[in-house]
C-alpha cells in the first residue's frame, strides 16, 4: 500500500470480459483476517488460449457464459474446495474474444501449507471444466466449432470424486 486509501476488497469470484489480473486474485486470497492462520503459500493457475486443438490451428476463441449461474457455480466450487482443504480460493474467468496466449481463467489458492494449496488449485480447475456454464467457440484455420466437453451436473458425485483423485491427495 503506497498510499493511504484503504485496500479495495477484491472479489474472490468473477466472470468478466475485462482482462484478468493475477494480482487481483492474490489480493483476494491474502486479505487479512485475525481469526485464522494466514497463508504460508499461494498456488496459482493461469489457463491461456492455445494455438492448437485436436490437430487444428486455432486462430482465436470466443468465450460465452451464463454469468449469474457461473458465479453461483464458482461459489459452489469454492465451498467444495474449502470443505476439503485448508485454503482460501479465488477464481476469475474471462468471456468474449481472446487471442492466442491470452488468459482465459485464473485461480489462486492460499493455505498455511503448500500441499493443500497445490491440491486445491488443481481441484478447482477440474471442477471448472466439469460444471462452469462457459463455452468455447473455437475459430480455426478453415472453420469454427463450439467445443462441448462435460455435461454439467454439480451433483454428479463420480465427477466430483474424479476431480479429488486428480488433485492427488486422496
Amino acid at each position: 500500500m503506497s498510499d493511504n486509501r484503504p485496500a479495495m476488497p477484491t472479489a474472490p469470484y468473477a466472470i468478466t470480459t475485462d482482462r484478468l489480473s493475477l494480482d487481483d486474485l492474490i489480493q483476494a486470497v491474502t486479505m487479512e483476517s485475525s481469526d485464522e492462520v494466514g497463508p504460508g503459500g499461494i498456488t496459482t493457475f493461469v489457463g491461456v488460449v492455445r494455438n492448437e486443438n485436436a490437430g487444428r490451428r486455432v486462430l482465436r476463441l470466443e468465450y460465452e457464459g451464463y454469468e449469474p449461474l457461473a458465479l453461483r457455480a464458482f461459489e459452489r466450487i469454492g465451498t467444495e474446495t474449502t470443505d476439503r482443504w485448508d485454503v482460501r480460493v479465488a477464481l476469475h474467468h474471462r468471456l468474449g474474444t481472446l487471442q492466442i496466449g491470452e488468459a482465459s481463467v485464473m485461480i489462486a489458492t492460499a493455505s498455511p501449507h503448500r500441499a493443500d494449496a497445490f491440491a486445491a488449485c488443481r481441484y478447482v480447475i477440474e471442477r471448472v471444466k466439469q460444471i462452469a456454464p462457459v463455452w468455447k467457440h473455437e475459430f480455426f484455420e478453415g472453420g469454427d466449432v463450439w467445443i462441448e466437453g462435460a455435461t454439467a451436473d454439480p451433483d454428479d458425485d463420480a465427477a466430483r470424486q474424479d476431480a479429488v483423485r486428480v488433485a492427488g491427495l486422496e
Binding site: G47, Y63, G65, Y66, L69, A70, R72, A73, H93, S104, V105, I125, V128, K129, Q130, I131, A132, P133, V134, W135, K136, W146, I147, E148, G149, A150, T151, A152, D153, P154, D155
Partner: peptide
C-alpha cells in the same frame, strides 16, 4: 440455479438449457 428436467416450472421462471460445457 442448476436444476433437473423434472423440476416444475411456472410463468415468470427463467429456464436455461446448457449444452456440455467447455470453460477453462
Amino acid at each position: 440455479e442448476y436444476s433437473r428436467m423434472d423440476a416444475p416450472v411456472a410463468a415468470g421462471d427463467e429456464i436455461a438449457f446448457l449444452p456440455p460445457v467447455s470453460g477453462g
